[in-house]
């Protein structure tokens, strides 16, 4: 296989899976158990993504400036600081720590 064939075949398969999902009747998720599980899937997905984004490094774990940045964000969310300001504060925390030579 050439690199182009690999890229095109994989891209079409990944796109095809997305489109196939829209052919499945939404009723599948209408039962209380299915609806509850789907809602909880969002929570599970977001929590797992937080972990991957905060300590993930390819296939492995790295503790760096992202972790204190997340702690700052958690504190600000608890204080009901607006979303955008929290995001900026988190980025600034990580950037600041790295400017000081850590993480």
């Amino acid at each position: 296989m050439t690199v182009w064939q690999i890229i095109l075949l994989a891209s079409i398969l990944v796109l095809g899976i997305k489109l196939l999902g829209y052919l499945v009747p939404p009723r599948v998720l209408e039962a209380p158990t299915a609806a509850r599980t789907a809602e909880l899937t969002t929570v599970a997905l977001l929590s797992a993504l937080i972990v991957v984004q905060t300590i993930g490094a390819g296939q492995g774990i790295v503790i760096d400036a992202r972790l204190p940045a997340l702690a700052v964000a958690a504190g600000l969310f608890a204080l009901r600081v607006p979303f955008i300001l929290v995001i900026i504060a988190a980025a600034a925390t990580a950037a600041g720590l790295r400017a000081l030579g850590w993480g």
Binding site: L46, I50, V86
Partner: peptide, 29 residues
């Protein structure tokens, strides 16, 4: 250098935060 990688985690945290008001979603999280 600009801390953008840390911003993504904080953004996901902000999305999940309001959903953690009952024991069940907290346990899942």
């Amino acid at each position: 250098q600009f801390g953008l990688d840390a911003a993504a985690g904080a953004a996901f945290l902000g999305l999940v935060w309001p959903r953690l008001r009952a024991l069940q979603p907290i346990a899942v999280a």
